[in-house]
């Protein structure tokens, strides 16, 4: 794998946790630059590692809880997300991966950010999904 990637995370069967999936659907319905790969990362957790290795820049997209004002779109650095890592469990997700990444990435560490939105209620509305998708593209192509 090479170049830049947007990796969308979430579960489309759980309202509120489907933010990344909806951004994936939104972006995949349009034209994307050749150098940019769009990935449905699902619930892979630690197994996202293989999707990160060899990239220049990776933008993760996910819902946030307790990290920002409701309804806002935020960009967090790898270090900011990694600070929330605890021990490993079946539910270990992006923070665990990003915390461990410098020790286990087989290629030079890519530039990594998380673009997310703090949910307002159980589900994000379409305008927030649109804002997220636009911010993801901007960061993926030009950096945070």
């Amino acid at each position: 794998m090479s170049g830049n990637a947007i990796i969308c995370l979430g579960n489309r069967y759980v309202a509120g946790d489907d933010v990344g999936c909806r951004v994936f659907d939104r972006l995949s319905s349009g034209e994307l630059p050749e150098e940019l790969e769009l990935v449905d990362g699902g619930l892979c957790g630690l197994d996202l590692l293989r999707l990160v290795e060899g990239r220049r820049r990776v933008v993760f997209v996910d819902a946030l809880a307790g990290l920002a004002d409701a309804g806002s779109v935020v960009v967090l650095s790898r270090e900011q997300v990694a600070a929330y890592a605890g021990g490993y469990g079946h539910g270990a997700g992006l923070p665990y991966l990003l915390r461990l990444l410098p020790q286990v990435c087989a290629t030079p560490l890519p530039e990594i950010v998380l673009v997310g939105t703090e949910l307002m209620g159980n589900a994000a509305d379409e305008s927030v999904i649109g804002d997220l998708a636009a911010r993801c593209m901007e960061v993926a192509l030009h950096g945070a």
Binding site: G66, L67, H90, G116
Partner: peptide
């Protein structure tokens, strides 16, 4: 044990961050 897997949003308690 495994009781998880559906909800996995990135979460924390603490000061809200702004992008």
């Amino acid at each position: 044990p495994c009781l998880v897997c559906a909800v996995h949003v990135v979460g924390a308690e603490g000061t809200p961050l702004r992008g």
